[in-house]
Structures are given as structure tokens and as C-alpha cells.
Simulated scan of single mutants.
Amino acid sequence: MKHPIRLLAAAALALSLTACSKVTADNYNKLKSGMTYEEVRAILGKPDNCSDLLAARSCTWGDEKSYINVSFVGDQAVLFHSENIR
């Protein structure tokens, strides 16, 4: 009888983690050109992936199916792109 309880607890935890995702259309609409990396991070949380090249940085929040990508130059957001966010 303990196994169904564990299964329900694991399902509830997984659901709560996905419900907390900051990769949403509302948060995407809060992004503005000229925001700093820290300002964007305050809205979206820690990025899942970043790559740096000279003075440019590109960061992605989410996964390959649903994501927000922000490109920064000199610590200012210049380009935004999203896929399959709600």
C-alpha cells in the first residue's frame, strides 16, 4: 500500500515543478530591449544554457520544444525569440 502513496507524491512533485516554470508568454512579454542579464534573470530565473562569444552572450530558458532565447551584447538584451510558450 505504500507504493501508491509514493507514486502519488512523485506525481504531485513533478506537477508542481512544471507549474513553476517561468518560460511563459507573460514573462516573455515582460522582456524589453536594453535590459541587463540580471534583469532578465530576475524575470526568467537561471538560464538552462548560455554561450558566450566575445562581447555577445546567448541564453536559453526551457528545452528544445518550448523555450525563450535572449541574446545580449555588452550585457544588454538585443534579440528575443520564443517557441511554443503559453
Rank of each mutant, 00 (worst) to 15 (best):
F80Q: 15
A14M: 09
F80D: 11
N84K: 14
D26C: 08
D26N: 12
L53E: 05
A14L: 11
P4R: 15
S71Q: 13
S21K: 05
G62A: 08
A12W: 00
V78C: 14
K22Y: 03
T24I: 08
A77E: 09
L15V: 04
A55H: 02
S82C: 14
A42T: 02
K30I: 02
M35A: 03
R6I: 13
S82Y: 12
L17E: 09
N69H: 01
L54C: 00
L8R: 15
A19M: 13
S51R: 12
L44G: 06
E83W: 15
Y37L: 11
R86K: 13
G62N: 05
A12M: 04
D63E: 06
V40N: 01
D63Q: 04
L8C: 11
I43W: 03
K65R: 07
A12C: 10
A12D: 01
A42G: 07
C50A: 10
V73E: 11
L44M: 06
P4A: 15
A25Y: 10
A55E: 03
G45P: 00
L13P: 01
R6N: 12
G45M: 04
R86P: 13
L79V: 15
H3C: 13
L79S: 15
Q76T: 12
C50W: 04
L79K: 15
N84S: 15
A12R: 06
D48L: 07
N69I: 06
E64V: 11
C20I: 04
A25D: 11
N49C: 01
P4D: 14
I43H: 01
